[in-house]
Design a protein around this nucleic acid. Sequence first.
DNA 1: ATTTCCAATATCGTATCCGATTTTCGGGTG
DNA 2: CACCCGAAAATCGGATACGATATTGGAAAT
Lengths: 230, 230
Amino acid sequence: MRERDQDQAPRLRPAPRLMLRESVYESLKRLLMDNALEPGTRLSIDGLARELEVSQTPVREALFRCEAEGLVVRRPNAGYLVAPLLGRDALLDLYDLRLLLEPTAAARAAANATERDRQDIDDAVRAMAPAVHGDSYQAYREFAEEDAKLHGTIANASGNPLIAETLDRLRAHVHSYRLYFRHGIAEVTAGEHQAVSDMIRDHDQTGAEQAMRIHLENSRTRLLAAYDQD
Amino acid sequence: MRERDQDQAPRLRPAPRLMLRESVYESLKRLLMDNALEPGTRLSIDGLARELEVSQTPVREALFRCEAEGLVVRRPNAGYLVAPLLGRDALLDLYDLRLLLEPTAAARAAANATERDRQDIDDAVRAMAPAVHGDSYQAYREFAEEDAKLHGTIANASGNPLIAETLDRLRAHVHSYRLYFRHGIAEVTAGEHQAVSDMIRDHDQTGAEQAMRIHLENSRTRLLAAYDQD
DNA sequence: ATTTCCAATATCGTATCCGATTTTCGGGTG
DNA sequence: CACCCGAAAATCGGATACGATATTGGAAAT
């Protein structure tokens, strides 16, 4: 590593004081979401380390975290693989859990959200509008990221950070995205999102709960349809 | 390459290959549950490494995981601390989430559990009986561990592994245990557990759901009472 | 073509080293 | 006496090198 300072050593501070493991984790997630890696691809620790130009230490920790989130799978003593796409049953399990948490979260958000929360939610809904008409995979990815942000904002507004954290950990948007991309779907959910946002804005708890439930059930149906048509 | 020709017979493995990070993680959890460490105690990485007689690498990964579970907190560039006990609000948040998941899990267990699952649940209930009368902190710990096992078994029987995994990640038993220990409580919950088990055995979904809800609400009330009397 | 063996390769853990930041502690100042 | 400042010590996040063990892919042998 001494030699590398010589051959291309820009004087600029290479210091993204952002905790290298975090940025490695983000890079890895980005790799998965860009669909650059087929499910089943080997993720060699020091291969990634070289590619990202870091040492193995942060890569290990990033993979460790991805494993906990189901984005990669580990074979003992034999490295990591890109996790397979969600199977039909795993998809149902995922939505099952979301349906337990998110409608309740929406209802609580309707009850507890601050004025600023409601504004953030509405902003997030509006931010998604431009993303729905693209066709490139970047458009898909932006859509998924905005969707994640919206659902996260609602969960945060619920007043129970543990719920928000639990949902975040499911990485539902990453899993869904991989499926969406695979099947070439990018449903327009603007109307459903708007409905949830409106209910929260109006402090309508049962309305928000219903709207979120309907949104999730529709989303599940769309993904399942894509599954079955294969 | 030498003696391998001879002994392909069942040789006992000295089991060095059990993933050191896992056992470090278990040791750390044990340390917390033995209440050997006051909340706020510094957990120096290489201090732990020396104490457990391993290198720093597995300690790092174990701490990383404990952090995700809220058992320790990290101060950037300044090490880890034993997490503070759950505050009143965090306790309510935790039970809030459990009340969303566990009654549903119990209902599904009543619907989906195999005969073997029902037997396991009943065994777990029975296993707790001897633990309730001890007075040492070991008795407390065994109680907490058995309780965790019972709730985990029910969640597994629900048929949705994601729900089980999510509950497991909350480490509710560790957090509760630390509170119980601090306040010197060890409630006898045998009756409530038996009720849940009976309902599941009888395939009574709404009964199981109700029984679990009542159990959790009682548990919450007991912990809150301990809080308020301080 | 199937099986056996072996060398290449990768993981997991260890040991060390380094720069950077945090913490601690001692002293000077108001 | 309290407060602030600055240097020393401790420790983190990361890099690198190395060893033991397990997997893997291919060649040799049956």
